[in-house]
Nucleic acid binder design. Structure first.
Lengths: 237, 237
DNA sequence: AATAAATGATGGATTTTTCCATGTTAGAAA
DNA sequence: TTTCTAACATGGAAAAATCCATCATTTATT
């Protein structure tokens, strides 16, 4: 069961359902893919727009072709938001929503302009039923995202604020922006929702890091200057 | 996609691979099930024994026929344990481990004596490949457990200690012991690892609840006397 | 351009939580 | 039974994190 080929998908394909078509055609036929194509819509979402909504019936699967989204969880009892994870294109979105048979557990919201392929769940699952390997491949993609949530859970459960904020920035470097220099898509408040702490804590920590020369910050523009130190904080902080 | 029939499995079947056979035969043939049977072992685990170990290759899938297990996560950086969730029989175990292609993300440890069916992953996945609906059903079971972890995550991320401990006891009542009176399988330390707080906090909270008449505690024997109040604490505490 | 609203930033008081020291009790092992 | 170890229990000191008030800056709206 080696699906490592899934990991080296070209990030630059535009239109024509791009990467999703390519992944899918490893498992299903062109005719089968046409069925998906016919009942799918290709949409653009602006920063801030909700793509899939928490609590709604999971009528669609989303394929993120370009852009960045957050998995956003609104707790029923309070007005507090939690960001489960950030995801950069290209990915099959859904995570737990994908195979969870009740209503969507969380919302998926664009934090950068996104190109999204919305696929009807019914059609998609019909294909999965007839194609075990395709189903397993999709499960494994979903499991990867589950793993990210679990790792974030460990971080939140066992580490102190500073280490958690460090984890958030290391994650963004490695999994979202693919580099140490980036224009942050999240507000300080959203970073706090991701690291599960107060906004003040994020701001204070960032100021401190800047003074110590660990990061360079100008508004939304970040550069991680001392990754080793950041990793050290993540470990012992 | 209605798999509601999975939810009404008889809890009292013993031996002969019991419930797992029954679930499986909804999707696969008797001959196919024999393949599983041939390469599987039926084992008993004593309280405290590890069934699947974190970091090991996922060579086996476990079906929990009777007993209670914890999903135990040891953070790599510290000696701290986190209990992701508690699971009572009958269930297909594995959760993320089940479909996650790398090493097991967490350990599965018996907190009560257990009867376990250990199935070779290879054989199991061979069947899933040839049977989409079976694969989907198994993944949905795994997603249920994922949901539990997510709900626990929300609790830990947004609530204070007392509310989290309340959540743990409500969960145990509803999903593990199926009633308000039970002999707790976890030590106070383990409850702390589940609620992500210190042992002292658990002990103090329990004493307080006992004084307020919310619970009755005699060593390991618990009775929830005022569930409404416990739910109230979970909400606003 | 003017105004409003959201975001970013800072310091101190308050609250929450953990850590530490100490002691008791229950259960396992010799 | 005795001894030992782990679990349970409590209180106070120390640390961590949030809350609150205030204000500057940026962004969006009229």
């Amino acid at each position: 069961m080696d699906f490592s080929m899934l990991e080296s998908i070209d990030r630059d394909i535009k239109g024509d359902f791009g990467g999703f078509r390519r992944i899918s055609l490893l498992f299903i036929t062109n005719d089968e893919f046409k069925k998906i194509e016919k009942t799918s819509v290709y949409l653009r979402f602006k920063k801030g727009e909700t793509i899939l909504k928490q609590g709604h019936a999971p009528t669609h699967i989303a394929y993120l072709q370009s852009g960045i989204v957050k998995f956003n969880l609104q707790s029923p009892d309070s007005e507090k938001n939690t960001i489960l994870t950030l995801v950069a294109a290209p990915k099959v979105l859904g995570g737990a929503n994908l195979f969870y048979k009740d209503n969507n557990l969380f919302s998926i919201v664009a934090v950068e302009d996104c190109e999204i392929l919305l696929i009807e769940s019914k059609v998609f699952f019909e294909l999965l039923k007839n194609n075990g390997p395709y189903a397993i491949a999709m499960f494994q993609m979903a499991s990867e995202m589950f793993k990210k949530s679990i790792l974030n859970f460990i971080s939140v459960a066992n580490k102190q604020k500073e280490a958690r904020i460090a984890d958030v920035f290391i994650y963004m470097m490695e999994e979202v922006y693919f580099g140490t220099t980036f224009k942050l898509s999240l507000t300080r408040k959203e970073v706090a929702e991701f690291a599960c702490c107060s906004v003040e804590n994020v701001i204070m920590t960032l100021s401190k890091w800047q003074q110590e020369g660990i990061v360079s910050i100008e508004g939304k523009n970040f550069e991680i200057l001392n990754l080793d130190k950041l990793r050290y904080i993540s470990r012992v902080g």
